[in-house]
Design a protein around this nucleic acid. Structure first.
Lengths: 224, 224
DNA sequence: CCCTTTTTGTTGCAAAAACAACAAAAGTTC
DNA sequence: GAACTTTTGTTGTTTTTGCAACAAAAAGGG
């Protein structure tokens, strides 16, 4: 089965023998779908019946507010999930949309099977529960990081806060981000053209350098 | 024991018989401490060895950035925890501080005992695990809500987005928020005086009314 | 009740961001 | 490679926010 091959690549299932994986995917009613760039995987406000797991590519969690503005909340990569919080917190609808950011492959599972102990007594299910806990916790910490970026006073500080976090994640002053300039503006909740101006200034000042999605922090903020 | 009385009031432990509660609190090495307004319960960057549970009063999760600006990330009430994400995601330090927002009573537990199945086989421990999952998920959703407020274009939209969420939580157009104006500015990451101006304008326009920490949304944003 | 501290509202000014419109550059498609 | 689409940078104008300083109001503490 193709599902198996993809799942096995993820850290989440690395401890699972094939046999157990098959049993689990059956139990979870797993389904796999491919999406092209910009395709909506699941719509904002729709029924939260399934949990989604990115197998390949990337997807963005997006939110449209009452004025029609669309903000990118979070970028998800292979191994990341969507909808798990709603499942555990028992929310009946998603409050955000999941949109494929490039060609992607996404698995979805029956939410009820994921959150409650399986009657089939799947061997890896308990292990999985702990991993889920870890993933939700990591998500929560990531959201807190984002709040710190958004809490910065100006565009310059917002973007530097974000880039420094990305640099830390990559453990290098050279790194690639998952957003183009338009998407970055949406992620940081600022005007695209204003962001462009600020980035240009930072480049001219020699603080950072960038090309496409690749960035380089040349001078780090040396306080504290 | 005093601990018992306080714990029993929380939804988290409502299913637990006294006997099991006692066993658990011993097992978790529970400690209880009282704090006055403004007192630091746990410092940013300190070792993340314990998990904190608010028993009485309120506390704020605060973050100081490299410029010395302090932002209120989140307000915690009785029944809310701090440090659980770090425990499950295996982070060794807290990246934020926990500060008592008023007179409060806080329990703390050994993080290792909380996250791994107890060898004593405490009867409620498994039940607790599921509740933890629910709480972390709820936290994650709350952080996403906050990101939506911070993603709004101006102060006016930020504050209205926040107030509408609070109104929804209270299921009433009359509600009380946990922040004074200074704290609200810090929570929404805007200038206090600018917020004051905007709030005054919204009041004069008849959109909202407020007194101290009590607010009333008179005209709801009627789009979408 | 007086004194002190904290909170809140106000104002003028400077700085920054939003907005709009456009042009250049890069990427896609056929 | 020509035509089209998307992304990016630029500029000028308007609006908003940040900042600083101050005064009034409220809260807290002997």
């Amino acid at each position: 089965m193709e599902i198996l091959r993809e799942l096995k690549k993820l850290a989440l299932f690395k401890g699972c023998p094939d046999q157990d994986l098959t049993r689990m995917t059956n139990c979870f009613k797993a389904e796999i779908t491919s999406y092209g760039k910009g395709e909506v995987i699941i719509n904002q406000s729709s029924d939260a019946g399934r949990v989604y797991l990115i197998l390949k590519g990337e997807a963005n969690v997006e939110h449209e507010d009452m004025f029609g503005n669309i903000a990118i909340i979070l970028n998800l990569k292979a191994g990341d999930f969507f909808g798990l919080e709603e499942a555990y917190a028992d929310k009946s609808t998603y409050k955000d949309a999941l949109v494929s950011a490039e060609k992607s492959v996404v698995a979805s599972f029956d939410r009820a099977k994921i959150i409650s102990p399986c009657s089939n007594n799947c061997p890896c299910h308990q292990l999985l529960a702990k991993d889920m806990m870890k993933m939700i916790s990591a998500r929560s910490l990531a959201l807190t990081d984002k709040i710190k970026h958004l809490s910065q006073r100006g565009i310059k500080d917002k973007v530097l806060s974000y880039l420094e976090t990305q640099s830390r994640i990559a453990s290098s002053s050279y790194f690639e981000i998952p957003f183009n300039k338009t998407e970055l503006a949406s992620y940081l909740a600022v005007e695209r053209s204003a962001l462009s101006t600020v980035l240009g200034k930072l480049k001219r000042e020699g603080v950072i350098d960038f090309d496409k999605k690749r960035y380089h922090i040349k001078i780090k903020n040396q306080e504290e």
